[in-house]
Amino acid sequence: MVKVLLWGSLRAHTDGQAEIEVQARTFKEVLDRLAEAHPGLRPQIERGVSMAIDGRVYREAWFTPIRPDSEVVVMPYMQGG
C-alpha cells in the first residue's frame, strides 16, 4: 500500500481525508485507484494532475514506479510561462 497525500480542496471528495492509502505500483495506478475509491476525484484527475514522487514532480508519467515507502503527493497540473 502507498500513502497518497492530496491537496486540501480534494478532501471534499474523500470524506475529509487528506491522506489515502492505495494499492499501486505506478503513477497511473495511483490515479486509477484514487478515482475508483473516490469517484468525486475523477473530474480533477481527468482534467490533469501532477504528482510528486519522493520530491520529484511528474506531470504525465504513467509508468513511473512507486515504492511502498515512497512519498506521493498529488498536485495540480503544473503550468508555466
Binding site: W7, V57, V73
Partner: peptide, 11 residues
C-alpha cells in the same frame, strides 16, 4: 528535507 507548503518534501 523541508516539507514544502504545497506538499512534497524538498530535495
Amino acid at each position: 528535507g523541508t516539507k514544502s507548503s504545497y506538499g512534497p518534501v524538498f530535495d
